[in-house]
Each structure stands twice: as structure tokens, then as C-alpha cells.
Amino acid sequence: MKRFTWPIAVLVVLLITNLIHTHTFLNIEVRDGHLYGSIIDILRSSAPLALVALGMTLVIATGGIDLSVGAVVAIAGAIACLRISDLGDQGSVTGVLGAVGIAIALALVLGVWNGFLVATIGIQPIIATLILMVAGRGLAQLITDGQIITVNSGPYKMIGAGYWLSLPLSVLIAAAVIVLAVVLVRRSALGMLLEAVGGNAEASRLAGIKARWLILGVYVFAAVCSAVAGLMISSNVSSADGNNAGLLIELDAILAVVIGGTSLSGGRFSIAGTVLGAVIIKTLDITIYTVGVPPEVTLLFKAIVVIVLCLAQSPKFRAMFQRRRPVPVAARADEKVQVGA
């Protein structure tokens, strides 16, 4: 819990800042049987990022990186919306489920491709996933024919904008996937194996761990998480934009992982920290608009906040200031007396 001290402190500061500018910021009310409020909006907007960051966490735990998650987000939304737009009845639940299944199946293939390049061919992860990052964005634009595909499907809109048990369905879906991941990696030896591969791949291989299959598996999992996030994003706006959907989400995902305390060099990881990091990033986005930061300096302001948070979490950075802290005069006098004695 100690490693979450600074992220939680930053999140509290952001919430208080919003509360100062908007006194009803923390209010949650029920409308038409659904929960509404700024906090609910933060959770809803955090759900897709939390899913992408979750997959990124396991990839980074093995010592890898996945730059293609944004492209997979765009591809999943594009193929699902294209399929739904071709349906005679866009309100058909069966048809929507079929479109969702096609999107996830395609994501599986893309995840296998990334994993094959990294685990079997031996290409550096940043290069292997950069290939799909570029080609995948082109594939998404090819699927949409360079246009924005608009759909009018109630069942599909439920994924990103619907409610169940008074809560946003997207939040419940993200929570279910996160809980499943926690059970798999923390209630079994899988998490320890991932950390072993990320800590020292060669040593883990000599110990009999099948690192190749583990690496392949995490890239497939990351792709599926990105596909589900893409379905949420596209269904929330009832459209697919192959050019802008998921753009730069890979950078926010990596930031969420780092803020959560996971090392980019691989090894130990924290799923809870990653989810907290995703919530902080989305809260920061809302804070920027609430405070009224000019649009031309928005990205710079966001970068400064993230840098401050990362430095505050760094033990070496804090230790540097502790070493430079001036010694009190009384303490120096005591030292002189002891030396003279």
C-alpha cells in the first residue's frame, strides 16, 4: 500500500481541485434509475484506458512493450461497425454479438502476430509492435474506406453507453476483465512466471519455464483487451473512425503502467496500480478542462503533472534531496564536541 501513497495523494489533489472549481463535482444522483455525476463520468472514461493498460501491464511484466494497442482499438471498432452497418436490422442482438465476435477474433489474430514476431522470430518488441502500429492504422482506414462509419444500433450502444444495475456497463465489463486477470495472475503461479520471464528470460528458460508461450499469451491478451476497449469507444459514439480512434492511447496506457509502479524493465508488476494510474490520467483530463487550461498548453500541462508524480515516486530522487538537506547547527556542534572528546 505504501507504493500507492503518491498516486493516491495526486488523485486526491485533483479531486479537491475540481471540487474547488465545481462545488457539485463529487455529487452523485440517480436519474431514470441510473447513477450520474462527474465521478461516474471519470469511471466511464477510464474503463477503455484501464483495459488497454491492463494488457500493457502484463506485456511490460515480461520485459516487452506493445505500441500497436491503439491500432487494434481502431481496427476492432471499425470491423464491428462495418459489420453492423451491413445488417438488415441493426437492432438485432444476434447480429451485434456476431460483429463483436468478429472484432475479438481479429484481435486474437493480431495478438498472435505480435507474439510470433517477438517470441518466435526474436524481433525486439518495440520494433515488432511498431509494425502493427503503422500497418494496423492503415488497415483500420482501409476497413472504413477512409470514412467515419456511423451505426444506429441500440444493443451495440449498450457496450459503451449503456447501464446495468444502475452502473455504466463499460465499467462493469472492465471490472470483470480486471478481476479475471487478478485471479489468473495472483491466485496462481502465472504471475510469478511472468515476473520470472521479465526479470531474467534466460534464467527462466534454463529453469524450465516456457517463456515463448507466456510471451505469446500476453500479447494476445493485450490485443483482446484493446479490442474490447475499441468496442467501448466506438459504441459510445455509435461510429468508427479509423484515423482517430485510439490515437495515442498506447502512450496513456504506458503512463498508467508507470504511474502504477510497474517497472518498464520487466519483472514485478501491479494491476491495482495500473488501474489507479488510468483513473488518475482521466481525472487529470477532466481537471484540465475544469480549471480552464488553454488548449494550446494542455499537453504540456499534462506532461508536467505526470513528471512531478513520477519524480515523487522515485526513491532515488527523494533520497537525493534528503542527502542535500542541511544539517542543523545544533547537530554540527554536537559532532564537533564528540570529535574533540
Rank of each mutant, 00 (worst) to 15 (best):
V10L: 12
V13F: 08
L15P: 05
I20S: 11
T22Q: 15
H23Y: 14
L26C: 12
N27I: 09
I28S: 06
V30F: 10
R31C: 05
R31V: 14
H34E: 15
S38F: 12
A47V: 01
A47P: 01
P48K: 00
L49C: 01
T62F: 00
G63S: 13
S68T: 06
S68W: 02
V69Y: 02
C81L: 09
V96C: 02
V100S: 07
L106M: 15
L110G: 09
F116D: 00
I121E: 11
T129Y: 04
A135P: 02
A135I: 07
L139H: 08
A140L: 10
I143N: 08
N152V: 01
I159R: 10
Y163T: 03
P168V: 09
L169A: 04
V177Q: 02
L180G: 13
G191E: 04
A196L: 02
L206V: 00
L206Q: 07
L206Y: 12
L206G: 00
I209Y: 02
L214V: 01
V220A: 08
F221G: 01
A222H: 03
C225F: 01
G230M: 13
V237S: 11
N244W: 06
L247Q: 15
E250Q: 04
G261F: 07
G261N: 08
S265L: 04
R268Q: 10
A272Y: 11
L276M: 10
T283S: 14
T287N: 06
F301R: 01
L309D: 06
C310I: 15
Q313T: 06
Q322C: 07
Q322M: 13
V329G: 00
A331D: 04
